[in-house]
Design a protein around this nucleic acid. Structure first.
Lengths: 288, 288
DNA sequence: ATAAAAATGGAATTTATATTCCAAACGCGG
DNA sequence: CCGCGTTTGGAATATAAATTCCATTTTTAT
C-alpha cells in the first residue's frame, strides 16, 4: 500500500507476504479459489481441490484432520490459508463457522422452505425434482425384480455384442450405458439413429439388446427390438409398466416407474438402474 | 441413586460422577436432556436451555464461547457435559460434529468395502446406487446456489440460441437437455462432436452455452466453452467443484457433487439439476 | 549442467483451548 | 442461627491445536 515507505527494513515480512484482504464471505472465498487455483503449486492445489470437494468439513475439522484428508502436510494447509489472504487457518475457519448455522436445518426443513416460495422460482422447481427423484429411487428397489435383474446381467454378460436402443427421453439412458460399457471394454453399440441409418442388420443371434422406452413409446425402438428378437437376439427391456409393447417380445423386463413433475421426469431411477446393470455386466464379464 | 453402596470410601469420585454411557446420537442427547433438565441445578439448567435453543452452535464453538453465550462459567459447561454422560466437552462436541457430516464420509468407506468384496449381486449394487443417488440429491439443494440458478435461467431465457456442450459421462445430461428444449420449442443445439465436426462457429454473441463437465474434465468441452466465451456468449457451467477449469471463464456455476460407486456415478443429481434448469428456462421464455 | 528460486515435509515452538482444582457462596435441615 | 453438603466462580494446569521455522527436495531459468 505504502510503497514510498522510507523504512523498508522496519518490517521485512511485508516483502514476502503479499497484502491481500481476506475474503469476507464463503462465496468470495470460493470465487477467489476458483480464479487462483491454477496458479497454486502442487500440494496447495491438491488441498484446494479437497476443500472445494468438501467445503462442509472446514468448519468442524482441525488443521491436522484436513491435512490428512487431503493427504498433505499441516504446514501446506497453513500456506494455503495464507495464500488465500487469511492470517492463518483460524481466521479462515472463523469465516466457515459463521456460515455454518445456515446449513444446520436438515434436508426436510430446507426442502419445505424452498417449496414455500411457490412454484415460481427455479430453486423451488429444483426442490420439486429432487423430491420426486428421491421417491422414484425408493420405488425402484421395489419395482425391479432382483431375479429379472440377475437374468438380465447373465444374458448381457453372455452376449457377444450388446446393442443399446433408445431415443428421445430414453436416449440419456442408452448413451450413459454406452459410456459405461466403453469404459469397461465391453463390446457395445449405441444405436443412435444417426443419419437415419439404422443398423439393425448388425444384430446377430448371439447378441443381446437393451431396449429403453417409456410411454408414449417411441415406435422406432419397438420396431428395432422386434426385428432383433426375430433374428434371435435376447432382449432386456427397461420400461415403465408391464403392458409396455416390449412385453410381447418375451423380453426380460426391468420396470422403472418414474414420477413426473409437469411434463418431465428426472430420470434418476432409470439412470441408476442402467448404471447398476452396466457395472454388474462388466464385473461378470471380467470373471469369465 | 445407589444408597446401599457398600464401599463409599473405595473411590469417592464414583459417588458424584454417575456412570452412564454417553448418548450415541444427537437425538439420544436431546431425549436425555429433556428428561434430566429439571433435576439440574440452576446454572446447568441455564446452559441446557441455551443448548436447546442453539443446537447448531455446539459443533463450531469453544467452551468459552458457549459459556459466554449462555452467561455461565466455562466450568459449568464442563460439569454439564459430564452430567450428560460425556467425559468432557470435547467428546460431546465430537458427537455434534460427526452427526453433521454423517451422510457423506462413511459412504466413502462403505463403498471401498463394496469394491474389495468384488461386486456382489446386481441388486446389491443397485441398492448402492440408489442410496448414493438419494444422498446426492439431498446434497444438491445445498450445493446449488439459488441465486446462481436464477441467473442461469435469466441468461438462458434471454439467449437467442442455447448451445449444449458435454461429452462422455456428461453427454446424458446434455442430451436430456436437448430433448427437453426441443419439446418446449426452445431453439437449442446439441454439440455432439459427431463426425468430428464441431460447430463452434455457430455460437454467436447473443447465444448462451451450457457446458457440462466433471473431473477428469474433457478437454474438448473446455476448449469449446473457452472459444464460445471469447466470441461473447454467456456460459452456464454444470460442474463438480469451484476449481473446475470452467471457473476461469466467468461462467455462472452450478455445482453438483455426485458420489462415485466404484468408477461410476448415478448422475441423478446432475440430471435433476439439468431438467429443472430446462423447465425453468422454458417457462420463463413463454412469459416473455 | 549448474545455480538460483520455489516448494515441501517434518519437527520445534507458540498459542489457544479444555479441563481440573479449590476456595467462597449458597441453600437446607436441624 | 449454625453446620454440612452442594453449587458456583475463577484461577491454575494440562492438553491439544495452530503456527513457524528450517533443512531437504524439486523445479525453473540460464
Amino acid at each position: 500500500m505504502n510503497d514510498a515507505s522510507p523504512d523498508p527494513d522496519k518490517d521485512p515480512n511485508l516483502a514476502s507476504a503479499e497484502i491481500v484482504a481476506p475474503p469476507q464471505s464463503i462465496d468470495a472465498f470460493f470465487t477467489r479459489l476458483g480464479s487462483t487455483a491454477d496458479r497454486l503449486p502442487k500440494r496447495l492445489k491438491q488441498f484446494a481441490n479437497y476443500i472445494a470437494a468438501n467445503p462442509d468439513k472446514v468448519a468442524v475439522s482441525t488443521v491436522a484432520e484436513l491435512a490428512e484428508g487431503a493427504d498433505v502436510q499441516p504446514s501446506a494447509v497453513m500456506r494455503f490459508c495464507q495464500e488465500m489472504g487469511f492470517s492463518g487457518f483460524s481466521q479462515m475457519q472463523k469465516l466457515f463457522r459463521s456460515d455454518y448455522s445456515q446449513k444446520w436445518p436438515d434436508y426436510a426443513t430446507r426442502l419445505a422452505k424452498l417449496r414455500e416460495h411457490g412454484t415460481e422460482s427455479p430453486s423451488a422447481l429444483l426442490a420439486e425434482f429432487v423430491e420426486v427423484g428421491r421417491a422414484s429411487l425408493e420405488n425402484l428397489l421395489t419395482t425391479v425384480d432382483p431375479i429379472a435383474l440377475q437374468q438380465a446381467v447373465d444374458v448381457l454378460a453372455r452376449a457377444e455384442t450388446i446393442h443399446m436402443i433408445g431415443f428421445r427421453r430414453a436416449f440419456p439412458v442408452t448413451s450413459y450405458l454406452a459410456y459405461a460399457f466403453e469404459k469397461m471394454d465391453v463390446p457395445a453399440v449405441l444405436h443412435s439413429g444417426i443419419a437415419n441409418i439404422n443398423m439393425e442388420h448388425l444384430i446377430r443371434p448371439n447378441d443381446a439388446v437393451i431396449a429403453v422406452t417409456f410411454a408414449p413409446y417411441t415406435e422406432m425402438t419397438i420396431d428395432m427390438a422386434t426385428k432383433a428378437r426375430a433374428s434371435g437376439a435376447d432382449i432386456v427391456a427397461i420400461t415403465d409398466v408391464v403392458t409396455s409393447p416390449l412385453a410381447r417380445l418375451k423380453a426380460i423386463q426391468l420396470l422403472v416407474s418414474e414420477l413426473d413433475v409437469g411434463a418431465f421426469r428426472a430420470l434418476s431411477a432409470s439412470l441408476s438402474l442402467a448404471i447398476a446393470l452396466a457395472v454388474s455386466v462388466g464385473a461378470q464379464r471380467n470373471r469369465m
